[in-house]
Design a binder for these strands. Structure first.
Length: 654
RNA sequence: GCUGACGUAGCUCAAUUGGCAGAGCAGCUGAUUUGUAAUCAGCAGGUUACCGGUUCGAUUCCGGUCGUCAGCUCCA
């Protein structure tokens, strides 16, 4: 293997060519060629590579610093090793499983009987600091598979053995270990690498949290303690990250929603059940009116259906057999009849369709409802308004002919895009959710599934939409296209969804009469641009940080009299605005103007109207915007024009 | 559901080793009549989530239940 005496040709990313002896490390290249950045990792022919790992053949070599994604990953991966070593020192019984870098840091899955708690973080961190201060090099040791496996068997660590087997199955010819220091003396870990040159590179590590996880993600398998941490090159970067986290917490919809009086959750009502307060209700009403207007324009018809249905309905639809566990238990009557809180609106809409005879000329039929559904989510899953047990979908079902599927599907995707554009969501990822061919949790004929999946994919491609196909994410009755956004914490949530369904029409035996005078099976499209009102509003709150644009704001205008003398004029102005459909309130308390402004500001009200002697005398009002901008006094006509303009300009598109 | 942490006034948070449960904001009352992010004073507000145990005495220690949070698993 060794070719120490040979010369190899290295091309740097800037095009510089160097002839160096085989076995030269990237770090030596840095010293020789001079590189602007402080590299922590190299990229050799597109593959991440230790700076200290010898180069033995011609290659293109680049360098990455700790601000780059690759560099940061490597640094955090190295930090994971340091943390694992620290934990092994403190708990010699700990068995390591798996410790990768993640988007915001890293974690290590560890099997250990004794629970690690946040009280232990300081001493873990202290051990890490010791290891970092020693600036021990990360040394790569490659072993032939048999030797490596023997070594792992000695360690009696089935998790690492399993990792190694998987690496070999994936085609790795050798297994690599990384020693933090000198082979044979220091701590080592089976690891593909790469790592930063030595522990001293990890300038600012922090142990963040601990939680349970499972081997291979299998609940029935061994349970690990997953210790999360993060690391940066410098303390300043860590501090900035922690500040960002803190700011994100303040933007959390649970915090903002509480401050702005939008919603509440009451233990006695039940976990995961949202109580919309008046301000939240107004916001929801605006959203509902906005969307209903769009739907009517696009040929939808509004329907209303009840919150429960007989259990047989859901046996026919498949909801009950497929998802009994995630439903509230059936309501049983004395005569033995059972009802279910509806987990979805589709069966009711199908029954509306089935109640009439349709010809192909009538299709598509588009039935829309803001329908409230109930799902018994596991207690550990509940989370503010984003994951709840009762929620209202902006649901609709399109019944169409097979020939109409593509056009209808395309139109619904365009509707979702229109909605998202209106609110200025730009960080939206689109997921094509397909069935898992190896699972039996899907209903119906595989041939129809193939057809539906193909149709979705082709329409998306036609539309030039970037999407990611993911197996196992489909609904039980059909594949779907999901619009996924991220909350302030970085968690991903599905909002809009469009689903193609050949199954439920079959299960319910619905039909229409075709041009050939024969009965045909319609195809269904399920779709919800918001997804759920609860989740959508949660994301909206975080998106705007509670500062809703004028057209959405629960309170658009607050009238502020300078003193009690102006109360009557202010109250009258407020009433006239309400008459005009403006969501206006008037602050008639005997407080100073400054205080009233401060509170209106804290409630993030877009427009304040200040009225004092001057305004009363001239019959005007002086706007102060949420931005702090003060405008000249406006008379009634000018004020209405100004508010209309606010309404128009605050919409993201239209 | 699992692991861990947490639960004190409407909200945000205090309370030495187990020793009479406190503050700010909000609320109420009064005074003040205010011109662009907090006027002043007073009052009231609690079965310390709930249930049980240890103790002369429990917000504090122990057990259980419920809920919240983080992650895992799940998510029609």
């Amino acid at each position: 293997m060794t070719q120490q005496h040979d010369t190899i040709q290295i091309t740097l990313e800037d095009g510089t060519r160097l002839d160096v002896p085989s076995g030269t490390t990237p770090l030596e290249l840095v010293e020789r060629a001079g590189v602007d950045v402080e590299p922590v990792i190299a990229v050799v022919d597109g593959e991440l590579w230790d700076l200290t790992r010898p180069l033995e053949r011609d290659a293109t070599v680049g360098f990455r610093d700790a601000q780059s994604e690759e560099g940061l990953y490597a640094l955090r991966h190295s930090a994971a090793h340091v943390m694992a070593e620290a934990i092994c020192r403190l708990w010699p019984d700990a068995k390591l499983a798996y410790g990768p870098p993640t988007e915001n840091g890293f974690y290590y899955d560890i099997y250990l009987e004794e629970p690690i708690s946040s009280d232990d973080f300081p001493r873990i961190q202290k051990e890490m600091q010791k290891i970092i201060a020693e600036k021990r090099p990360f040394t790569r040791v490659e072993l032939p598979p048999e030797v490596a496996m023997d070594r792992l068997r000695e360690e009696d660590n089935k998790y690492k053995l399993d990792n190694a087997e998987r690496a070999l199955e994936a085609g790795d010819g050798v297994l690599s270990f990384y020693v933090t220091g000198t082979p044979g003396e220091n701590w080592e870990d089976l690891c593909r690498g790469p790592h930063v040159p030595h522990t001293g590179y990890i300038g600012a590590p922090k142990v963040m949290s601990v939680a349970a996880s499972h081997w291979h993600g299998d609940v029935n398998s061994d349970q690990f303690q997953r210790v999360y941490g993060t690391a940066f090159r410098t303390k300043a970067e860590l501090k900035e990250y922690l500040n960002r986290l803190e700011a994100a917490k303040q933007r959390d919809h649970r915090v903002v929603g509480q401050k702005l009086g939008l919603f509440t959750i009451d233990e006695q009502v039940g976990p995961g059940l949202i109580l919309w307060k008046p301000r939240g209700g107004r916001l929801r009403q605006v959203l509902q009116d906005f969307l209903t207007g769009e739907l009517v324009r696009r040929g939808y018809q509004v329907v209303f259906t009840p919150h429960i249905g007989k259990i047989d309905l859901y046996k026919t639809s498949g909801h009950y057999p497929f998802y009994a566990d995630s439903q509230f238990p059936p309501i049983s009557l004395e005569d033995g009849e059972q009802y279910l809180l509806k987990p979805m609106n589709c069966p009711h809409h199908i029954k509306i369709f089935a109640s009439d005879h349709y010809s192909y000329r009538d299709l598509p039929i588009r039935l829309a409802e803001f329908g409230t559904v109930y799902r018994f989510e596991q207690s550990g899953e509940l989370q503010g308004m984003t994951r709840v047990r009762g929620f209202t979908q902006d649901d609709a079902h399109i019944f169409c002919t097979p020939e109409q599927v593509r056009d209808e599907f395309r139109a619904t995707v365009e509707l979702v895009q229109f909605v998202f554009r209106t609110f200025g969501f730009d960080d939206v990822s689109i997921r094509l959710s397909l069935r898992d061919p190896n699972s039996d949790k899907y209903a119906g004929d595989p041939a129809l599934w193939d057809r539906a999946e193909r149709e979705l994919r082709e329409v998306l491609e036609d539309m030039g939409i970037d999407f990611r196909a993911e197996e196992g994410e489909a609904a039980f009755y059909g594949p779907k296209v999901d619009f996924v956004v991220r909350d302030v914490i970085g968690r991903r949530w599905q909002l809009g969804t469009v689903q193609l369904d050949y199954n439920l029409p079959e299960r319910f035996g619905i039909q229409y009469i075709g041009a050939d005078n024969q009965a045909h099976r319609p195809v269904m499209i399920h779709r919800a641009p918001f997804g759920s009102m609860e989740r959508f509003v949660a994301i909206l709150i975080e998106h705007y940080n509670g500062a809703f644009p004028y057209w959405l704001a629960p309170e658009q205008v607050r009238v502020l009299p300078v003193s009690d003398k102006h109360a009557e004029y202010a109250a009258d102005l407020g009433r006239r605005l309400i008459d005009r459909g403006v969501r206006a309130e008037t602050d008639l308390r005997s407080e100073t103007l400054s205080k009233k402004i401060r509170e209106a500001q804290k409630m993030k009200i877009p427009v304040m109207l200040i009225v004092g002697d001057q305004e009363v005398e001239s019959g005007t009002a002086s706007p102060r915007l949420r931005s702090g901008e003060q405008l000249d006094a406006l008379d009634w006509a000018a004020l209405l024009a100004f508010l209309d303009e606010q309404d128009r300009d605050s919409r993201g598109s239209v």
